[in-house]
Design a protein around this nucleic acid. Structure first.
Length: 408
DNA sequence: CGAGATTCATGTGAAGTATACCTTTAGGCTTAA
DNA sequence: AAGCCTAAAGGTATACTTCACATGAATCTCGTA
């Protein structure tokens, strides 16, 4: 494991401990919330064009006309969400127009037609049960509340809706005349999303389109630098380090959110180690911690069966690897996984799901990005899906350990 | 030898089932006049 | 008689199962050179 490993151990054990902040009086932070990724600064750098565009489209609402619906595209971390929120905040200050922001990707919260609608109603101050009611009743309530008002409805990560036939929602909303006052703003990073849409929905939804381009290194630097100014102790970080961070982020598709997270975590680590200068090494540690957290979070929040499935994939992969020198990144087939999975279930007194269902679970793992799958035909030997784990080795170890404790 | 048929193992769509939860309704019990 | 509680009836969303058909290239088959 070595020094690095020991250091990493230390870093990982770090929780946002309530005492640690008070204990060491000097901290690299001045204002920590500035560095959180959902913080909305007073001014947004390098998104002027997009913001004006958005504002101009929404402008008619102040004169009582209905603006067009809007569709926003752009890679992750290009400022789509934050710019939209920013504009809507400003609009809220200038008028009393109601805006609702929904992230459609939250599992068990807003990822189906019913749940999304329920969530929106909740936002509007109407409580509805989480199951049992006909969807039509929810629509009725919704239209009652909305009647005659202008409401801006932002659907972030709108592509997630489509997977679970939430398509209906868009169709119903955009079609209903009663919903006249509803302005839809759809946000997605999936360029192909529009192809899946019903053509009528599509044309009404994308009356206007805004495209967010990735930030370049220079712009990222400005953004990071501003956050540094506002949130960190001036002496705690050298400009070169910020520049390096920006450059690295620019290479990875100009993702500003990730860059800011990285900065914050590096700062936390520095604090944690009771140091007062953030160095490159801390960034490396932060990078690793971020990856570990991402995967750990994803795995932990998964239902039991999905975990059992992942466990099976990991174990099978290991098995194959010990046989041959692992020179090909080991692929596993659905059938093998399912057999192993059944064993795991039996051992843990879990009732195993059918292969049909497991197949869907694999698809889900694929879409979360824990696993990558591709359908291959092996001619005479049938057709199957090759599953490749996307978890890096050092993180895999932890994941495996975690799963071992459950299913071992 | 090569074109077309066969075959395998699983992908994938559609329809059905189990479960958990919701509202409405009607009967029965209590209460207060 | 009015008010309240409870249980049954009738209904829904979601996660999962069952059924049935679709896929696609390695292999097999068989006619032909």
């Amino acid at each position: 494991m070595g020094v690095w490993g020991v250091l990493m151990e230390k870093v990982l054990k770090f929780r946002e401990n309530i005492f640690s902040n008070y204990k060491n009086a000097s901290s690299v932070f001045i204002d920590k919330k500035v560095l959180s990724s959902n913080y909305i600064p007073n001014r947004l750098l390098h998104r002027d064009q997009e913001i004006t565009q958005l504002r101009d489209i929404l402008l008619p609402i102040l004169k009582g006309y209905k603006p067009s619906n809007i569709f926003i595209y752009g890679n992750v971390g290009t400022g789509k969400t934050i710019s939209t929120k920013f504009v809507l905040n400003q609009l809220g200050e200038a008028s009393n127009i109601k805006t609702i922001y929904m992230n459609c990707k939250l599992k068990k919260v807003s990822d189906t037609e019913y749940r999304l609608l329920a969530q929106i109603l909740k936002e509007l101050g109407v409580w509805v049960p989480e199951t049992g009611l006909p969807t039509s009743v929810l629509y009725k309530k919704f239209f009652e509340v909305v009647e005659g008002q202008n409401i801006i409805l932002v659907l972030d990560e709108i592509d997630a809706l489509f997977n679970h036939s939430g398509n209906e929602f868009l169709y119903n909303i955009s079609r209903t005349e009663t919903a006249n006052g509803i302005i839809l703003i759809g946000i997605t990073n999936d360029i192909t999303f529009k192809n899946h849409l019903d053509s009528r929905v599509c044309s009404s939804l994308s009356e206007e389109e805004i495209i967010f381009k990735p930030y370049d290194a220079r712009q990222l630097y400005d953004i990071l630098n501003e956050r540094v100014q506002l949130g960190l102790n001036p002496s705690s970080i050298a400009p070169e380090i910020v520049a390096k961070c920006a450059a690295a982020a620019a290479q990875e598709h100009g993702d500003a959110r990730k860059a800011i997270d990285l900065l914050r975590i590096a700062a936390e680590i520095t604090d944690r180690l009771c140091l007062d200068k953030i160095t490159e090494q801390h960034f490396e540690l932060a990078h690793e911690k971020m990856n570990i957290d991402r995967v750990a979070e994803a795995v932990k929040s998964q239902p039991k069966h999905t975990q059992a499935l992942l466990y099976s994939i990991i174990k099978l992969r290991a098995k194959i690897n010990t046989g041959s020198q692992n020179w090909v990144d080991s692929r596993v087939l659905t059938g093998e996984v399912y057999e192993y999975y059944k064993g795991v279930c039996a051992k843990n007194t879990l009732k195993s799901l059918t292969q049909r269902r497991v197949s869907d679970l694999i698809t889900e793992l694929n879409s979360i990005g824990i696993v990558s799958t591709s359908v291959v035909s092996n001619g005479r030997y049938g057709r199957s899906r090759e599953i490749v784990l996307l978890i890096e080795n050092n993180i895999l170890e932890r994941t495996e350990k975690f799963l071992n404790e459950i299913f071992g």
